[in-house]
């Protein structure tokens, strides 16, 4: 692990889970915020859901896309869900 990168667990939900094809993954990233991380993963996996429509939770609590990403955290990306 390079000094400027961190290891995070990413959790995917609903439509993002379908598009990513995974429930969770452990990865190493140079991203310093959830926004950067989402941009990176969205581009890599063609997630096709604008960032403004995605909410992030870090270690079980809703956070902001600009929060500081620490090593070892669990990052959940949550798309809006409307079905009923």
């Amino acid at each position: 692990m390079s000094p400027s990168s961190r290891r995070v667990t990413v959790l995917w939900f609903a439509v993002l889970r379908e598009r990513r094809g995974l429930r969770s993954e452990l990865l190493e990233t140079a991203a310093t915020t959830p926004a950067e991380l989402y941009a990176e993963l969205s581009a890599r996996h063609s997630l096709g859901l604008e960032q403004r429509l995605v909410r992030v939770a870090i270690d079980g609590a809703f956070s902001t896309m600009e929060a500081r990403l620490m090593d070892g955290v669990e990052v959940a990306f949550i798309p809006p869900v409307a079905g009923g």
Partner: peptide, 30 residues
């Protein structure tokens, strides 16, 4: 509450609570 595929979510919007409302979570409604 909302559902998608095999997943669902539920929350309580309590006007007097500390958790805020649906728009606190999604300031820019999808």
């Amino acid at each position: 509450a909302s559902v998608h595929g095999f997943e669902g979510e539920i929350m309580l919007v309590d006007p007097n609570g500390l958790g805020g409302c649906l728009q606190c979570l999604w300031p820019d409604p999808p």
